[in-house]
Write a protein that binds this DNA or RNA. Sequence first.
DNA 1: GGTGCGATGTATCGGTCCGATACATCGCGG
DNA 2: CCGCGATGTATCGGACCGATACATCGCACC
Lengths: 212, 212
Amino acid sequence: MLELAILGLLQEAPMHGYELRKELTAKLGAIRAAISYGSLYPTLRRLQAAGWITEAAETPATAEEVPALTSRRGRVVYTITAEGKERFAELIAQTGPETYGDTGFGVHFAFFSRTDRATRLRILEGRRRTIEERREGLRDMLGRAAERLDAYTLELQRHGLDACEREVRWLEELIANERSGRAPTVPQDGTAGGRREDNSPPPPGETRKERP
Amino acid sequence: MLELAILGLLQEAPMHGYELRKELTAKLGAIRAAISYGSLYPTLRRLQAAGWITEAAETPATAEEVPALTSRRGRVVYTITAEGKERFAELIAQTGPETYGDTGFGVHFAFFSRTDRATRLRILEGRRRTIEERREGLRDMLGRAAERLDAYTLELQRHGLDACEREVRWLEELIANERSGRAPTVPQDGTAGGRREDNSPPPPGETRKERP
DNA sequence: GGTGCGATGTATCGGTCCGATACATCGCGG
DNA sequence: CCGCGATGTATCGGACCGATACATCGCACC
């Protein structure tokens, strides 16, 4: 999962570890707290060993600033390679059980603007399936085996059930929107100069949430 | 976390691994999918080494059934010890950052009927704090840095923000209920014969959810 | 003028937990 | 009588986390 997220972010721009973590936290803030360095650095090492990224010590630009005054501890900048981009494309197109779990789904969703529509639909539907099953399990529990559980556990189940129902509705909207939306899902490359303004696919949600 | 959950369940009745997993999945179904055996068995081993549980091969009751017909692979039944109960009490009373994370909170909450009210309140408030901070982070992101992110990531944040707001409201209710609730939180033991009907503390939620 | 503190930055280590896998028994329907 | 799904115990490699260590920078405060 981290592998996918890192490759996805480095596709936008080269970065060093600290920055990568911040971006990661920003992009995935809705689903996981913060990525640990204990995961990040080993993974970066692994990606480099596989040839999907390269690491380079930061050079002081064009020697405009005095370079060796304090022998500054060099930041290590990571850049994605062509093989890395292939790897990313491969990972992002995969669908399967681990894609439908909480974390897996979140990461894939966060990179939906780099995913083709067919895959997006498969993932959204798989996720819906998964959540529906979880929902049924909770419903059963609250129906039949309710008397075996104490009040707090029951309340936890109710809250979970509520979250499931809500997410299913959210997914329905996204799926409907996805089916009817135009905008051809530009696969797009990267690297080349002009940081362009993100002409991303269909605007996912149109529903305004009103409170009663 | 698993440690706490196992000790908590074994306090209700001795069980073998498979059963333990099922009960675990039932009790925590709202927050995590299913506990892996790759976690369960090593943890049981660890708990036994620490003297908090004992394992015993299942004997065929009172030799009423023919015992050694097929040399049945014995089920291993785990029983909590007195030290185990102390350990559980110690763990359940702990509050701290890991208690406020998604998983930690869920597990603690699931055993609230064995937790004294003061601790319950501390945990609920700590959790609220944590979620409020996450919520603020998401709000900031959706306010300020919105243009840096693509439509899908934004939608993910919105959905996350919504979940945060909802959980905060849920926690508010629980806290209010907890403060005004009577019912003295019987710490209760276990073991002794009669499986009683769960006279648990205050009924957490009274609000009926109506749909608009 | 110094001094401490929070942000930036790289890195490792032990431990928890997951997913895949293996293997064996039991009861039931076809 | 045979397969198949539920029951049951168990291990292994790998992903990820939390704590920790260490170093630099800029800025506020005294």
